[in-house]
Design a protein around this nucleic acid. Structure first.
Lengths: 122, 122, 122, 122
DNA sequence: GTGGTCTAGACCACG
DNA sequence: GTGGTCTAGACCACG
């Protein structure tokens, strides 16, 4: 369910966050689903529980999951999620990549086609 | 010419690299233009020279600038540049942002429109 | 009568305690009223009886309810209750929120108006 | 500058956050002031750096401080801060204390007077 | 059993 | 020197 690239320069806790969002988009994680516990996730991924904890805390802050005391963690409803996205940050990151592409001589049409391909692959 | 956001989480040397590419795309920097020296750039931006050095080294590696011994550094021709772009990395980063957007419920058409807007603003 | 927010970070037993006080203030629970048993409350709220037990024990310690051996539990008279409030704790918690508000630039008058609104809503 | 009550049930990192806000309100910390480094704060308070780090991360999320890469951390402008306060949470916590007070028989006027006293003491 | 807090470090990129 | 990430745990309240 959760694929971690240990060689990536992207922090593990960020990879976990992204994988959660990916699984939700793909319909693998559905609203109300119980999320594997911090300890179990940690032992499966063979990382320390604090790293998983950090990811879960951020996911909760973003409204992606909800924690119920001493019971566990659950996938939240999609209602909460949409509003919390930091569009400003996404725009900036997107702009960074587009500068890279435009500088490399890739035209808007090719970019659009790449975007479509990637978006549909999600 | 070079705008640095010191509060950004993006490393300063990466910001310099990006600003060079942006200036080239915008036509502000043209092939054969002399590039300000490491020391001058460092004093203008009020940062340590080694940071500028790191940026220039990477720009040279990517074929964006060329250093001619004892003469100085120049903007390279666009021929060299195009091939060195790391499409793999751009794809990955683009995918990251698209996951974020799709999870937030932003549809492909809206994404395309955002991409067009940003691309054209460059 | 008793509303529990299972997603809240406030412990369930504390929520029960507060709901009792709220019901008494609102006149829904009156002196001498029989209080539902631990087991019934637990099954109604779908929580473990020990949690209800913990709430009742604290309510009794605070003089809000009284247990009469083998007869059951009852809402106590208001005489007992007033004195047991931990003003020190309330002051501290109140201060915490006021610091938050003052830091956010909310003036005393706005705070007073908010306090009035909330107090009257109880 | 930063007073920690090690006996308090309030987490240390939350106490640090609150002390920052208090110092800003009191004018002890001013916009642009350099904030003591994570390591120094940790050694002064005799706690582990990760706890200070957690507090700083949350303060940054709230826009109270800003981190400049490898240079250090600074008190942010008050412009950013006001908007980020979670009024919902403050309202809830305030309501909790007001229920406690109303249940204890404390009238609105007394509450207002207490609020004034505490607010002015900040 | 659950997540939250904290310890006491290590290693890292950045500047 | 700086903050960010991660380790490998301990202890805790809650249920």
């Amino acid at each position: 369910m959760i694929q971690i690239d240990y060689k990536s320069d992207k922090p593990i806790y960020e990879q976990i966050i992204q994988q959660f969002k990916l699984n939700i988009v793909k319909g693998i994680f559905k609203e109300g689903d119980k999320v594997i516990s911090v300890r179990k996730m940690a032992s499966i991924l063979d990382i320390t529980p604090s790293t998983v904890s950090k990811a879960y805390a951020e996911l909760e802050r973003q409204g992606v999951i909800e924690t119920i005391r001493a019971k566990g963690t659950y996938i939240a409803g999609s209602g909460l999620q949409a509003q919390d996205i930091s569009m400003e940050k996404v725009r900036k990151n997107l702009l960074d990549e587009l500068i890279e592409l435009k500088h490399a001589g890739v035209g808007l049409e090719q970019v659009q086609s790449l975007v479509r391909e990637l978006y549909d692959s999600i």
